[in-house]
Amino acid sequence: MRTQTATSSLGEVLGVSGADEDDLYAAMDWALARKDAIETALAARHLNDGTLVLYDVSSAAFEGRTCPLGKIGHARDGVKGRLQIVYGLLATTAGIPVAIEVFDGNTADPKTLTAQINKLKNRFGLSRVALVGDRGMITSARITEELRPAGLDWITALRAPQIKALVQADALQLSLFDEHDLAEINSPDYPGERLVCCHNPL
C-alpha cells in the first residue's frame, strides 16, 4: 500500500512519502477531533451576514455492521436493503465546503435542517442568511416551523402540483412569458414570499 500512495499526486502535494490504512485512519481521527474548530474557521473566512449558503444531503452505503449510524433508508444509488449513512454539506455559492454533518442512514432530508440552522446561527454567529436547498428538503413545514422562526431566508423550488395550482388560480399566467423568460409573481398561498418563474420551452 505504501508504494502505491507514495506515487500519487496528492502525496506530492501534501509532502507525504507514503501512507497505509492505519495512517489514513489516524489522519481522520485527528480531523474529527478538530472538526468544530475547522468548520468555524472556514465559516469565518467564507461566510458573512447577508450571504447565500448552499445545503444538500447525500448518502453512502457501507459493508460494516457495527456503525451506530448505519441504517437502511432512502437509497439514492438505487441499491436497496443496504446499511447507509446520510451526510449534509454546507457550502458557499462558489462551492467551497464549509461544514459537514453525518446522520443516521434513515434520516429524511428535511429532518437534517435543524442542525444546520443551529450551526449557522449559534456556532457560526450568523443572523442573516439565505439557505439554498432543493424542494425535497426545504418543505413548507420546515419553512413554517424552523426557517421563519430562526429569522433565516431561503431559496428553493416549488413542486409540479404547486405550480399547477398557481396556474389554475390565475396567479401565474403563461402570457407573462410572451416577452420575457423570467417573471416575478405574488400569491396569497405564499404570503411574504417572492415567486420567480422561469419559462421552460420544453
Score class of each variant (00 low, 15 high):
T66L: 04
T51P: 00
E39I: 12
V16M: 05
R82D: 01
I38S: 00
D29M: 12
S58V: 07
T66M: 05
G50P: 10
R65C: 06
A99K: 01
L32W: 05
V57W: 01
Q84F: 02
E21K: 13
T66Q: 12
Y55T: 11
V16W: 09
R65I: 15
V57I: 13
L89G: 01
R45D: 08
G88W: 01
F62D: 06
L14T: 05
Y25G: 11
T93K: 05
S59N: 10
D77L: 07
R65S: 12
D22E: 10
G78T: 12
G70F: 02
A75Y: 12
P97H: 08
K71C: 02
A26F: 07
V79S: 04
D77S: 06
S17M: 09
A60L: 13
K80L: 04
V86T: 03
G15C: 09
T51G: 07
L47N: 03
D36I: 15
D36E: 14
K71W: 00
R65M: 12
G88V: 05
I38W: 04
D23C: 13
L69K: 11
G95S: 10
I72C: 10
G73M: 09
D29E: 14
V57R: 11
I38D: 00
D36Q: 13
E63C: 12
A26K: 07
G81P: 00
D49H: 05
V98G: 01
G50T: 14
A91Q: 04
A19F: 12
V86W: 00
R76E: 07
G64S: 04
L52R: 11
V53S: 00
T93Q: 06
D56M: 13
V13W: 07
W30K: 11
P68I: 11
G70L: 13
T92L: 02
F62C: 10
A27M: 10
L90S: 03
Y55V: 11
R76H: 13
T93I: 15
M28N: 02
D23G: 02
D56Y: 07
Y87D: 06
E12G: 14
P97N: 02
G18V: 10
V53F: 00
D29N: 08
L24D: 03
G88C: 06
V79W: 03
L42Y: 02
L24I: 15
I72E: 04
A27K: 02
G50D: 08
G18N: 07
A33F: 02
V57H: 04
V53G: 00
H46G: 10
G95Q: 07
T40L: 14
I96Q: 08
T40I: 14
C67E: 10
L90T: 07
D36G: 04
S59E: 08
K71V: 05
V98N: 00
D56P: 07
G78N: 11
A43I: 07
R45M: 15
L42F: 14
C67F: 06
T93E: 09
G88M: 05
D36P: 02
G64R: 01
S17V: 13
T40D: 15
G88P: 03
I96V: 15
I38L: 14
E12H: 09
V79T: 12
G18Q: 02
T51R: 09
G15N: 06
D77T: 08
T66N: 11
V13C: 07
L32T: 14
S17D: 08
Y55N: 01
P97G: 03
A37R: 09
E63F: 11
Y25V: 15
S58P: 03
G95N: 09
Y87N: 08
A41E: 09
M28R: 02
T51K: 06
V13F: 09
S59D: 06
A41G: 06
K35P: 00
